[in-house]
Nucleic acid binder design. Sequence first.
DNA 1: GTTATATATAGATAAATATCTATGGGGTAG
DNA 2: CTACCCCATAGATATTTATCTATATATAAC
Lengths: 301, 301
Amino acid sequence: MSVVKTRSLSETARQLHLTQPTVSLQIKRLQEEVGEPLISMQQQKLQITEAGLELFRTCKQVVGHFEDYQDFLAELRGGERGRCKIAMVNTAQYILPKLLGPYSNLHPHVELPLEIGNREEVLARFERGEDDIYVFSHPPSLEQAQAARFLHNPLEFIVPNNHPLLSLKQVNLTDLMQYRFLLRENGSATRMLFESELQSRGLVLSDGVQMASNEAIRVAVSSGMGISLLSHHVLPMGDHSFTKLQVLDTDIASQWYFVMRTDRHISHAARSFLKFAQTNLEQYLDIKWVRNELHKLNIEP
Amino acid sequence: MSVVKTRSLSETARQLHLTQPTVSLQIKRLQEEVGEPLISMQQQKLQITEAGLELFRTCKQVVGHFEDYQDFLAELRGGERGRCKIAMVNTAQYILPKLLGPYSNLHPHVELPLEIGNREEVLARFERGEDDIYVFSHPPSLEQAQAARFLHNPLEFIVPNNHPLLSLKQVNLTDLMQYRFLLRENGSATRMLFESELQSRGLVLSDGVQMASNEAIRVAVSSGMGISLLSHHVLPMGDHSFTKLQVLDTDIASQWYFVMRTDRHISHAARSFLKFAQTNLEQYLDIKWVRNELHKLNIEP
DNA sequence: GTTATATATAGATAAATATCTATGGGGTAG
DNA sequence: CTACCCCATAGATATTTATCTATATATAAC
């Protein structure tokens, strides 16, 4: 490269802190490799041949490509580019987009593929290490898991409008047992939490119906099919097709956690997203429920 | 590269006839060099990371550029591309384009810079080795020169229309001596030839005027300024503003030669042009004058 | 549980590579 | 004509590189 600019082997050697024979030999070998003369002497001046010039152009382009790659790496490292795969349990899909949206606007080149499943499915993904970040209500207590709470998740009882319970002055958990309960499938965090509450108080449901999604349950309650317990964050603000029920002696709540594997490499994009979350949780989520413990995650490089 | 396709280090090793540790180590070192993980294991399957994929793309492009360069070299070697610098004496500029035109159409990517000068100038260029091919009437007899005749160059006497000589039944060289002769500068091949002819016959010109170009001489003769001796090839066919004079006892002619240096690398384009000339001289030049001795040049690689 | 397969690591080695110093030849400029 | 600058070549050497064998580890298949 330098030879093309200086048109002199000796000068090149000086610039590169090499000796002249070294440069001479390098050029000679390069010519043998190419099979064509790359330079020629003309009136004691070194000329670059056509083949030499074209090789020079080729090399410039190649160097350009590697520089582009370095730029790509820089963006990757800065968290401006890359991929951050997130797997979350169903309930979280109502709340996480409030964070993902602003983040995605700030880092448009970061891919954010989302996986949504029930607890069991997300757990399986975690065990296979398919994603960068997992969102659980009840993080697995495996040693490869590091978890940090970020949001309080209060559960609320909902009943159809005009339900008999609404006419009572005050309602206790026991009062609810006689009604048909609509619940998510076994293993769902909400259901686990509810059932353990019942068990610890020695209560038993008289009638339970299993439904596949939070929306299905909400709509079913609205149409009088039964009563249920749902995450506060799942209930649309302006929806009056059902009624929230205050149950005096009961306060069931869980937390949401960001979970990561300790034994897997943390992608720059994931690191970048978590940092963003750590500093912006309060801004994008209802500050009433925010529980920012993201510092517990080991996200520094 | 193969790793990206096979998604397996062992399989790659088999395909490349290497052992698995070799591939493993190579990838490891590549990752250390890049400073980012390029592959990752996921459920026992090898995944390529973003950084890895981007590097793969970069490498494909780089390989592409070198393949382009190989194509360039192939064209260069086939004489379809490159440069063939030709320096010729003034007189030759009337005849050589008849060869250069068809050749250039056949090989549009070959650059054909032409240098035109008087004998002295072209000789200087030859000595400095500035061009690939030289065209002389009287090739230098240096040992670094190899020359091959390709065209007979008869010289013709021209006189103004209605010149007294035209009324003579027959004209001898001696008859011309009393008239003013228009001649090219000293060192011109035509002049050299003419003067040596005069000298060998003990003749002396009474009056000579030196002019810089063949055209100037032709026009000057037409306008009655004197008489001259010019190459047959310089005289336009349909021009009747002057008259050719048959001189009985005199037949002056020279030859045109392609000349090359033996001590310089012959460019593929030059080789290609000379081959073209060798096989097509008769087609593009008046066959009456062609003297094809190009086989004397050592133009095989 | 045993076997097979995939990747990772350590240690050894032969080949290739990048250098250097020393020297020779050709040409230019005092 | 001599000193100087340029490039070319030869010989020596130290480092780097590519590669192997042997072995360990983890997972999947039987």
